[in-house]
Write a protein that binds this DNA or RNA. Structure first.
Lengths: 160, 160
DNA sequence: TTCCATTATGTAACCAGTTACACAAATATA
DNA sequence: TATATTTGTGTAACTGGTTACATAATGGAA
């Protein structure tokens, strides 16, 4: 408990969240690399989306994951490059990319899933001493959605 | 509660943490820009470190904030560029950059602090419905430090 | 005292996200 | 039906982090 950010209390919270999510990101990348899977940290979520729905557009994915569309464009093109996604032209709308899993993706999925299962266990271990963490994270997200950091801080500044 | 990542439970946790910390990052940057402060999101922490100790090296900062030294090199050079940091040669060790706040930094600090205070209030608001959040975050960090995602997942995979 | 290991910093290349802008296709409206 | 708006995707430039490598200065040990 001598960590500077922790000592700062609420002032260090944003930094700690960034640090944690960065650690997760790099450690996940490292994991995939070390077991020889050529997939990126977030492809996981994209694959899962395709289990719910066979065809998705860039926009569908970006809305479901709450990420900007250019981010999805990048992810999707790397997934295509590796041969996990293909697109089918939409007959009614020439702008759309109707994306689907390839056969390669489908055949690899069972292997991927074993690794993702292990990852889920890890996340359960990480919060095993923090029984309220997931729920309280939802509350934080809700607050943020209601009014974001910039707006809140601006108001707090004017009030102070 | 129809958010895909939330529905995923533990499987969506890493993504949610990334999303939250990204939102904080961009919103903070946006805030600074909109109030006309030419400082980056993490300079804050560096300024605070200099309140505890007048002189610091790159390594000191990188250890205190738990960030890689190249990250600090970048932050420090932008802070120098903007005239907030200067360095004094160490008489005993020619490798070291002994960094100090400039007069400009000291004179600006009171203004900065008002904004940071407003930011602290914001963070308090964000966790106001989550009384265990900070404490439980510490537990998560402790777990992670003990054994990181990669190692844990690797073990979980072998065991499964 | 010379040589080896360590430390402090710097640099390059990469990565995963963002905002801002562009533009064609589709849709709605005057 | 012509035009204005909205939608879907793409691209460029930026940011804040990382790892891997390089190098010079220091310190320790043979």
């Amino acid at each position: 408990m001598e960590d500077f950010l922790t000592l700062l209390g609420h002032e260090g919270l944003a930094g700690r969240l960034k640090r944690l999510s960065d650690e997760l990101l790099y450690s996940t990348r490292d994991y995939y690399k070390s077991v020889g899977l050529d997939i990126g940290p977030n492809w996981h979520l994209v694959f899962l989306l395709f289990e719910k729905k066979e065809e998705l557009t860039i926009t569908d994915i970006s809305e479901a994951l709450n990420m900007s569309h250019p981010a999805i464009v990048k992810i999707v093109s790397s997934m295509k490059e590796k041969g996990y996604l293909q697109n089918k032209k939409d007959e009614n709308d020439a702008r759309k990319q109707n994306l689907m899993l390839t056969e390669k993706a489908k055949s690899k999925l069972p292997e991927f899933k074993k690794h993702w299962e292990a990852g889920i266990l890890t996340m359960q271990q990480l919060v095993s001493d923090s029984p309220n963490f997931l729920e309280e994270l939802s509350y934080v997200e809700a607050k943020f959605k209601e009014r974001n950091y910039k707006e809140r801080t601006f108001e707090n500044f004017k009030a102070g």
